[in-house]
Amino acid sequence: MTSLSGTPVGGGATSTAPAVNRNAGRRRNRWFAQVGWRHLVAVSAVAFSLFPILFVLSAALNPLGTLSSTELLPTGASLENFTNLFDRTAFGWWFFNSLLIAGVASFASVFLSALAAYAFSRMRFSGRRVGLLSLLLIQMFPQFLAIVAIFLLFTTITDLWPAIGFNTPWGLLLLYLGGALGVNTWLMKGFFDTLPRELDESATVDGATHAQVFFRIMLPLVAPILAVTGLLAFIGTINEFLMANVFLTNSESKTLAVGMFGLVAGERNNNFGIFAAGTLLTAIPTVLVFQMVQRYIVSGLTAGAVKG
């Protein structure tokens, strides 16, 4: 830490020959202090992140893949597990359903929670803090207990409106939107709070309506956090299992999480290779979405706005 800003005064003119070396060394030190250590941290973090995944990869490539027989490094390179995945299961459907549900759910929930976060951050009304706190607390009730109530609710819905009942992506979507406000609102509210109030105030003075302030000024400024919450909601929905398991029983209407769990949950069976292959494929849409939103996350739109 000390070396970073330090331009030591000592070096100087005592001897010239070693100074060249020292300068090179110093430059290297300097490079390390400013950039190098960052790579070191990043590389070790990547190693920590990847080694269990490498294990899954090697299981996916091993046609006899089981948990205990798999080594860290791939021993074979067979795509048998991948082809089996598509031949034996409705993986294509699962994939499609997951993309549909997670895609729509994450967009909708980002939108809903951005609306709420704007109100919580910029407006003062009675019940504001109680509302924020209840939003958090309601998420804390154990979900496995609420399943009974959800069955009750959706049995009625299925009877009346089969289009949004059990075994439909829309029904599950509605259920997920129930949780849209939760954590996302908190996260976004925190970001709205960091934006200087003068921005929207001056706009208001200029005659903008609250909706214009929200859509034209606030939303673009919080684009990074919209991207982050969108991504998090996407991942959260793709991984959601407890509700989807009771909700989707038709093989073709299942999501990845439910379908994949079925591969390993089967009584004492050994589908680990196929399961590992599926796990890897499941990660692909998430990585793609991340790629898509990455530029918003890193573009630093906000910083620019504050400058201007």
């Binding site: 990043a42 973090a45 990547v46 992140s49 990847l50 269990p52 995944i53 899954v56 991942i235 793709i238 991984n239 299992f241 990845l256 999480a257 994949m260 769990f261 390993v264 399961f275 796990t279 890897l280 499941t282 990660a283 998430t286 990585v287 991340f290 790629q291 990455q294 890193v298």
Partner: peptide, 16 residues
Amino acid sequence: YRVLLILPYAMPSFAM
């Protein structure tokens, strides 16, 4: 780096 670091979160958590 970011893509690689995000991978643990992209994998289905119950599986991992």
